[in-house]
Design a protein around this nucleic acid. Sequence first.
DNA 1: GATGAATGAGCTTTCATTCAT
DNA 2: AATGAATGAAAGCTCATTCAT
Lengths: 230, 230, 230, 230
Amino acid sequence: MMVVSGAFTSEAQHQNKSARTRARLMDAAVEVFARDGFQAASVNEIARMAGVVNGTFYVHFKDKDEIATRVAARIAADVIDQITSAMTDMTDALERFSFATRQFIEFATTQPQWCWVMIRAQGFHPELLRQLSGHLGQDLELGRRQGQIKTEIDLLLIDIIVAMMLVALSARLRGEAGPEAGARLSELVLTMLKVAPDHAKEIAWKDYEFKRLHLTPLPRAGKVKAIGVA
Amino acid sequence: MMVVSGAFTSEAQHQNKSARTRARLMDAAVEVFARDGFQAASVNEIARMAGVVNGTFYVHFKDKDEIATRVAARIAADVIDQITSAMTDMTDALERFSFATRQFIEFATTQPQWCWVMIRAQGFHPELLRQLSGHLGQDLELGRRQGQIKTEIDLLLIDIIVAMMLVALSARLRGEAGPEAGARLSELVLTMLKVAPDHAKEIAWKDYEFKRLHLTPLPRAGKVKAIGVA
Amino acid sequence: MMVVSGAFTSEAQHQNKSARTRARLMDAAVEVFARDGFQAASVNEIARMAGVVNGTFYVHFKDKDEIATRVAARIAADVIDQITSAMTDMTDALERFSFATRQFIEFATTQPQWCWVMIRAQGFHPELLRQLSGHLGQDLELGRRQGQIKTEIDLLLIDIIVAMMLVALSARLRGEAGPEAGARLSELVLTMLKVAPDHAKEIAWKDYEFKRLHLTPLPRAGKVKAIGVA
Amino acid sequence: MMVVSGAFTSEAQHQNKSARTRARLMDAAVEVFARDGFQAASVNEIARMAGVVNGTFYVHFKDKDEIATRVAARIAADVIDQITSAMTDMTDALERFSFATRQFIEFATTQPQWCWVMIRAQGFHPELLRQLSGHLGQDLELGRRQGQIKTEIDLLLIDIIVAMMLVALSARLRGEAGPEAGARLSELVLTMLKVAPDHAKEIAWKDYEFKRLHLTPLPRAGKVKAIGVA
DNA sequence: GATGAATGAGCTTTCATTCAT
DNA sequence: AATGAATGAAAGCTCATTCAT
């Protein structure tokens, strides 16, 4: 098995050796979590894929849970960051929702590993998806304030919508759904939120240009060592 | 941890010792799968909860996979059987769908363990849910034929609806959603399928009497003694 | 796997049920010992092949060792009995030796299972072969008394000859040696014993008619139960 | 049971810790294979005798088979190497054969464990003995070319000779044969190959000086660090 | 910081054997 | 005699984690 080299590694390429090793471990973890799931993933395998011996893993992470949490946090942060930063000048709530949904599904094409990790996170690292829910909820709230959404918005509804997004993402990853899955999903959700069918269709299928997922540059400065999120 | 005693055990209480032990193992398996998931579940733990030594497990099941498959199959069969048998005289497709959805969510109250197993089955025993999808799909097709559903029905749509059901079930199990979750979900799905809002609301919130989940009596056919048959 | 039915079963077919079960167990044991060796053979497997449940095994045999010992004893007794009874009117020691050797190798054709058991017995049930050695030694001694063998005959020599016989038998069973293996072996041994080459060849390749191995009818009368040969 | 310390351990005493542990495991394996046979040998027992916990075994060997194969390979290589290197200046085929045979039997005195392993290898690690056969065959072929052996040499014959050697070795190990066993065997084989009795005796009983078996120093080539190589 | 050998608990599975029926 | 369920010890193997270097 080749030593991995992914987004974290690229990001850290001009940092010190420690940071680079850590980055390789995280890329390897993404790979392994994506392939085997959080539970079945083994530290040995992550270390092997990172090209370090198993002991080195524990220099950088307290235990398997810590790397999982950090990988999840980073994925959540970056996915959200890139979706929101691409929408800075969109003001219409429904459009924002639709774009976000479709961009999310679109990541299946450009970053399948990360997407698999998000899917695998269900049940094991719910915080990953909770962040997504948060942002989603804000746009839906905005929709209510704008008068475009009449349905009541609560946690259950948001959970339901996130679940819909994940299952569509999964179908996309497995090749069971085509490129239109995002728009399709968007239209379904809007309809469910009682947006008028024509309007729902119009917004959901609008022509957008989507981005490739990349790591959000970290505005970090000094060392950040084992913050110890028990 | 106490020795379990669940639905299978009750069902087998008047059968022979082997059947009773086997039943206890299955009840224990439900317990453990519900709590730890299929992957993390250990045969030792199942045996311990069934009150037998670990070797006994293998007298009754070839391996962990076999008991998992059997438990999953039995849960799927019984859940479906009880939902469908309660709907025999319902002819309206939307009503059937709504009733099935709500009865399904309702099981969270009466058989939480089984429901957890269904949730945990995602990804590990997809066949469990696929059976559900099948029946769901039939009612939706009926809805189309009856002219009540105009949306196109395909695999992605069905997967999405099943995902919605599972997340609602999960919310209910965790106490994050109240007794109205089923009706709520039903209305959302009907709306999503472009049923007129008023009609959707009317059907989704109709007053039904739901059943407690119980084991479907097995139509056993007498002893089957396998003497030297390969 | 079919229930076996071999020599012991035939022999016991007119005896009581207990004797028949016991016989089936022994036939099954031959089968399993031949296939897996004494060590790897499992009681469960023997019982299964005999068409009884595992508990039944212990009604008839104290433990695995007992059936092994009995099977070995019976095979040794019968092999020897049939070889010797076919030689009653042979008086020439070299001829007796040659015939015995060749008849022994010939069993590979008619009773491969028994032969495998003999081969597998090396190291685990040396008593099986020791009986063979005994009879062999007698004929060799006779050869010395007749003046045909000049070499000194001791235990090492006999062990060596038995080893030669077993390796030839094994080659025959595995199909690596043809029908002439017995004569070939016989000639080699005679030469080794310093019989004149021409004479050795003449005796070794003589034309004999060999028998098919069958069970020696037991002159038994009453029950013989678990004699407890610890 | 004491922690073992044998030939491999000595050889590795100036190597790194890993190599030393590995060596102790191999010495322990020799001990256990010699005592219990390859089949009955247990990894736990090997680890215990090596003075490590059982998990450590798997740091060094993939499974029981791997250590068995390595031990067998090493024994075969060393035995052959030492016999052949002691014969470099012998040109007479019969003498070479006789010396090799006797040196082989002689190992029973200096390395009984290794010899037991060779005997136990019959059936389980035939490749161990096959290498021996190969070298043996070469000398016999040489004997034919030199005109000293007239008998046809084929696989069966070689197998027979190897079997003779092993049974003699075994008798020697068990104390059932004295120091003359090697010469005795050698004479028997030569006679069997139709070497003239006087000549056979002369060659077989010639006075040789035999070596103690020791490990052939490995021509190691420096550290080989496997970093992330598949 | 990195190494990598070692640990030991825990897992799945097999199997000889016992025993109540 | 026969059953067959149950036992429990022991096997092979994995893996998160520790620690001396």
